Computed example of a mutant assay.
Amino acid sequence: MFRTSPSLRRAALPLLACLFLAGCSSDATDGPSTTTPGSSRTATVGAPAQAGSTGSDSAGSDSAQAGSAGSGKSGDAPAAAPVRISIPSLGIDSELMRLGLNQDGTVEVPPAEKGMTAGWYTGGVAPGERGAAVVIGHNDTRFGKAVFHDLKKITEGADIAVRNDRGAELHFRVTATETVSKKTFPTEKVYGSTSARALRLITCDGAFDAQGHPVDNLIVYANRS
């Protein structure tokens, strides 16, 4: 299991300045040419590499192409990897696949055919570690409603439970939600360094543009309870 150092992740933050969600479209048309055949029409997560670029949906991966299973000093035991997330108040209960980076440097997302499965971005920390752990899920795909379709209904104080591969269940309490334009995604706020044991959930939100893609992102902020 590979890990990236905190300094490497901090150095990458300027590149993440254009990270945004671009998918979860509910229209019936095909997406741009960057979309991988068999996936949803556009990427759920934008690129950490080149400003303005749009990621393509991965075929999905149970092992990350890049990123880490948590942070820590060299020689530390690997962090426990998350395997399941649930939000009892919303009836959400999903396995967690691992998401790394695509070959073009964009963040992987769950494939459309696994729209009811959320994914943990392994380039950040594991949930429960100090830092920001990020979980990504579709709002909907061409197959219909997806795992985070009702995430907009979550309330402050709601419980989010994450089970890891060592059998422990970690609980997080929602502290805030934020709807932002994809053009002004708050990269530092979401992915930046924090001493808290934080969890971020990300999906699409808002009205649709002319191509049928949601123009906003919904971000849920939570801390270990």
Rank of each mutant, 00 (worst) to 15 (best):
F2L: 10
R3Y: 04
R10L: 14
A11I: 05
A12L: 13
A12S: 14
L16F: 14
A17P: 01
C18V: 01
F20I: 01
L21H: 07
S25W: 00
T29L: 13
D30Y: 02
T34S: 13
V45W: 01
P48T: 03
G55D: 14
A59Q: 15
G60Q: 11
S71T: 12
S74C: 11
S74D: 08
A77T: 15
A79G: 15
P82C: 07
I85A: 13
R98S: 10
G100M: 09
L101K: 12
Q103A: 13
D104C: 01
V107M: 14
E108P: 15
V109K: 02
P111N: 14
T117H: 02
V125P: 06
P127R: 00
G128M: 07
V134R: 13
I136K: 04
T141N: 05
R142K: 10
H149E: 11
L151G: 10
L151D: 01
E156H: 04
E156I: 09
D159E: 13
R163C: 08
A168K: 10
R173P: 00
V174K: 04
V174N: 06
T175M: 04
E178M: 10
F185C: 02
T187A: 10
E188Y: 09
T203Y: 05
D205Y: 06
G206C: 10
A210T: 10
N217M: 05
L218I: 04
I219P: 00
